[in-house]
Structures are given as structure tokens and as C-alpha cells.
């Protein structure tokens, strides 16, 4: 979206332009359109009846519930952390700030499998804290706790990195003004800061939630794949697929694909409508 500026004078010749557009459309249909279509086509290969049966299967429902549970824990925790981090980083000046920002972004550059691995190394049977936890009767790996931890690791930066640049750009003036007008810390945050960042926060929550519900590699490592207990939707897709229950696998996958589409639509609407309120748009 080039801000509506005229393209005149820097237009490519028509043949070049059409070739490039055609290439783009071809490439995107091949790599995005077809896979997406394949999910729904495979899911409905044997009709709606089979489809409905697959997504109402008790194991599938248990997987959905678990996915919702994990997201319902990981996302709010992420919001609290993200807002705290953004407040400290954007509204104060301290030494080591850029190091802190780098550390917060760290999980983005770590392989999902490694994200799961680190928890196994800490809390697994042969891990650092394994024996201690064992003695206390606490299990983390192969339990929901492990799933939540691994999910929090991979989604860690989502909210914070959305808020930090925005709040830095907004500065401290409004908060200081609120103080001189007699507002307290909480009043200032709730009445001034929060409304200023609400759309960016929502944007971050959206992306964080999509990743939390769709995460595969990290949770796969810590899950143990116990049906009905530690099987999230993406893991359930894997199990079904490996059992050659293709229709069922694609049926569950289609729900995740729908979630992705809804996320994309909501994200795009936010970008169109509140472009100025989103700092990190286009800076994934």
C-alpha cells in the first residue's frame, strides 16, 4: 500500500508489469492457494458425514479442549509479560536496554524442536531438575505443564515486540501529563496508556494466539503424545496422519486452517483500520 502516491513516472513497461503480476499470482497459487485448497479437499474427500464424524471424535474433541486450554494460559501470561516488558523498556531509560530487547526476541531465532528440547533437558528424567521434581512427585515433561511452558517459550516475544516500538514512539508526555493532573500510576496506565496501545495489543494477542494454538515442534517434543491427555490439535493431526486416517487428519487440520484464515482476516482488518496504531506492522 504505497500511501496512494502516484505511480506515474515509475511504472514499468506494460509487458514487464504483467509478467511480474502473472509470476506473483502463479507463485502464490502454487505455494499458498493449492496447499490451502488441498487441506479442505482432502478433509471433504469422503463427504460431510465423514468430516463431521472426524471432528466430533472424542479424541479430536479432547485435543481441541487441550489446545484451547494451553492457549488460554499461555496467551494471557504473555499479555501480562508483554505489557510489563514494554512499559519498562519504552517508558524508562536504563543501561542494557538493547540487550534486554535482544533477549526477548531470542525465541524467534530458536528452532521449535530446540525450544522443546531445552525443557526436556531441564525437567526430563535425566534433566537438571528431573530427580528433584521426581522426588517431589511433580511431573512437567509429558504433561500439560510442559506443553504450556514450551508454548510460552515459542510465543514469548509476540506481544512485547508489538508494543515496544509503539510505546517508544508514543513517548512519555501523555503519562506525565496525567500525573500532573493528579492521576495515580494505575489510573495513568488504565486510562491513558492502555487505550493508546489497545489495537497493537489486540494485534499481538492475535498473532500470539495463532502461534500458541498451531505450535507443533516444541510441544511435540515435550508432549509424549498421550491421546486424550497431552495431545493438542496439531499433534493429533500428526497421529491421525501417521495412522493413515487421512480424512480425519485433514478434517482436524481444516479447523486449524480456518483458525489461520480468521487470524489473517482479523489481522488484515486491524492493519487497514488502525495502521497508525500498530507500530510493528510489516516488521515481523
Amino acid at each position: 500500500m504505497s500511501g496512494g502516491g502516484s505511480l506515474r513516472g515509475r511504472r514499468d513497461p506494460a509487458p514487464v508489469r504483467y509478467t511480474l503480476i502473472a509470476l506473483t499470482l502463479l507463485y502464490l497459487s502454487l505455494f499458498i492457494g493449492l496447499p490451502l485448497a488441498a487441506v479442505f479437499a482432502e478433509a471433504l474427500r469422503e463427504g460431510w458425514g465423514e468430516y463431521l464424524k472426524a471432528i466430533t471424535d472424542p479424541d479430536a474433541i479432547a485435543a481441541m479442549q487441550l489446545t484451547l486450554l494451553v492457549a488460554a494460559i499461555a496467551v494471557p501470561v504473555n499479555v501480562v509479560f508483554g505489557v510489563c516488558a514494554a512499559w519498562a523498556i519504552a517508558k524508562f531509560d536504563f543501561a542494557g536496554k538493547s540487550l534486554l530487547v535482544t533477549l526477548i526476541d531470542l525465541p524467534f531465532s530458536v528452532s521449535p524442536v530446540v525450544s522443546g528440547l531445552v525443557y526436556v533437558l531441564l525437567y526430563g528424567a535425566n534433566g537438571w531438575f528431573g530427580p528433584v521434581l521426581d522426588a517431589l512427585g511433580i511431573k512437567i515433561i509429558f504433561t500439560v505443564t510442559g506443553l504450556v511452558l514450551a508454548t510460552m517459550f515459542v510465543t514469548f516475544p509476540f506481544v512485547a515486540r508489538e508494543l515496544i516500538p509503539l510505546m517508544q514512539a508514543q513517548g512519555r508526555d501523555e503519562e506525565e501529563a496525567a500525573l500532573t493532573l493528579g492521576a495515580g500510576g494505575w489510573q495513568t496506565f488504565l486510562r491513558v496508556t492502555l487505550p493508546n496501545i489497545r489495537w497493537a495489543l489486540l494485534y499481538g494477542v492475535l498473532l500470539c494466539n495463532a502461534r500458541a494454538m498451531g505450535e507443533f515442534g516444541a510441544v511435540s517434543v515435550v508432549s509424549g503424545h498421550i491421546r486424550g491427555q497431552t495431545n493438542t490439535m496439531p499433534l493429533h493431526v500428526e497421529i491421525l496422519y501417521n495412522e493413515y486416517s487421512f480424512v480425519a487428519a485433514f478434517a482436524v487440520a481444516s479447523l486449524l486452517a480456518l483458525l489461520a484464515l480468521v487470524t489473517l482476516v482479523a489481522k488484515t482488518l486491524l492493519e487497514w483500520r488502525f495502521r497508525d496504531d500498530l507500530a510493528a506492522v510489516r516488521r515481523h
Binding site: 496447499p35 487441506v39 521449535p112 498451531g214 493431526v237 487440520a253 486452517a257 489473517l264
Partner: peptide, 9 residues
């Protein structure tokens, strides 16, 4: 979409 679509899907 590749950002939003779960990798297993």
C-alpha cells in the same frame, strides 16, 4: 499465510 498456518497443517 505461512506465518499463520500451523506447520503441521
Amino acid at each position: 499465510l505461512p506465518f499463520a498456518l500451523p506447520t503441521a497443517v
